[in-house]
Design a protein around this nucleic acid. Structure first.
Length: 111
DNA sequence: ACGCTGACGTAAC
DNA sequence: AGTTACGCCAGCG
């Protein structure tokens, strides 16, 4: 199954669904897709997301709420800028109130 | 053609 | 309770 959609594509689909002003983690996306162990690949997929418009990679952080991928943006500041622009406060490279802003696809999309 | 690395996360020791 | 090792997939050296 999922032959039509690659792992990368699946990740992109979920990331696109992340509401504005919300954030999620790589593991949450991987878990939603069904391959929790592939959380690492999710991050790697994000790296490729640069080639695809409409992929709010800045809304994806690690389980600690840390902006691990900010250095991969055009400018390291861009990730923080985009998040703060959406109302997500970032302090010390970490999302403030990460737990509140956390958007779990396996829960939110389940409703 | 082969192997290492990399935006993570969990299990094991 | 802290640290180390591994799994996962794909791009690149």
């Amino acid at each position: 199954m999922a032959s039509s959609f690659d792992f990368f594509d699946s990740v992109f689909q979920v990331v696109k669904l992340i509401p504005r002003g919300r954030v999620t983690s790589y593991g949450a996306i991987a878990a939603y897709i069904g391959t929790k162990k592939s959380s690492r690949v999710v991050g790697y997929a994000m790296n490729a997301s640069h080639a695809i418009p409409g992929i709010p990679a800045h809304r994806v952080v690690n389980r600690l709420g840390c902006l691990t991928g900010k250095m991969h943006f055009s400018n390291p500041e861009e990730m923080e800028q985009l998040l703060e622009k959406e109302g997500v406060l970032v302090e010390n490279d970490s999302v403030v109130n990460f737990k509140q802003l956390f958007w779990d696809p396996s829960i939110e999309l389940e409703l």
